[in-house]
Amino acid sequence: MANIRTIYTYIHAAMERQGYDHVHLLIGALKVSSAKFHGWKAGRTKISDADVIKLAELAGMDPHLAVIDAAIWRAEGKPHYKILVETAEIIQSAA
């Protein structure tokens, strides 16, 4: 199975790379509300492509893969979830 990164992977990497000691600094850098950010972390809401790209850039991670990861998170429990996971596996095996 593909190594699917979680929202926590991106958050922790961004915090570390930017040297932030509090999530509010990351929330400010992302220019999102605290409620929106905590909704992502709790799984109540799913991150948009634009926001995951910003998060990936702050984390020093590939924004292309971040968009795929976010699509997988949003598709969980839906029929196309398996297709997205398989797509991620193909991309990762080619890298």
Rank of each mutant, 00 (worst) to 15 (best):
I7S: 01
Y8Q: 10
T9I: 03
T9G: 02
T9N: 13
T9C: 12
Y10P: 00
Y10A: 02
Y10N: 05
Y10I: 03
Y10F: 11
Y10K: 07
I11R: 09
H12P: 00
H12I: 05
H12S: 10
H12A: 11
H12Q: 08
A13H: 02
A13G: 03
A13I: 02
A13C: 05
A13S: 15
A13P: 01
A14W: 04
A14Q: 04
A14G: 05
A14H: 05
M15N: 08
E16C: 07
R17K: 08
R17Q: 12
R17S: 07
Q18G: 03
Q18N: 13
Q18D: 02
Q18T: 09
Q18K: 12
Q18Y: 06
Q18S: 11
Q18V: 01
Q18C: 13
G19S: 10
G19D: 10
G19Q: 09
G19C: 11
G19P: 04
G19T: 08
Y20L: 04
D21G: 14
D21C: 07
D21H: 13
D21I: 05
H22S: 09
H22F: 09
H22M: 14
H22L: 10
H22K: 15
V23K: 12
V23S: 05
H24E: 12
H24Q: 08
H24G: 02
H24N: 14
L25T: 06
L25W: 06
L25P: 00
L26A: 00
I27E: 08
I27F: 06
I27Q: 03
I27C: 08
G28T: 04
G28F: 03
G28K: 11
G28Q: 10
A29H: 07
A29S: 13
A29T: 05
A29Q: 09
A29P: 07
L30E: 09
L30H: 13
L30Q: 12
L30I: 01
L30F: 11
L30P: 01
L30T: 00
K31P: 01
K31I: 00
K31C: 14
K31L: 09
K31M: 09
K31E: 14
V32Y: 15
V32R: 15
S33A: 09
S33F: 01
S33Y: 06
S34F: 04
S34N: 13
S34M: 11
S34E: 14
A35R: 12
A35Y: 13
A35H: 06
K36M: 15
K36T: 12
K36V: 04
K36N: 10
K36W: 07
K36D: 07
F37H: 04
F37T: 01
F37V: 00
H38P: 02
G39P: 01
G39M: 03
G39L: 01
G39C: 01
W40H: 09
W40I: 00
W40S: 08
K41Y: 01
K41W: 02
K41L: 12
K41H: 01
A42F: 03
A42E: 06
A42R: 15
A42T: 10
G43I: 00
G43L: 07
G43V: 08
R44Q: 11
R44G: 07
R44A: 08
R44I: 10
R44C: 02
R44D: 11
R44E: 10
T45N: 14
T45A: 13
T45W: 05
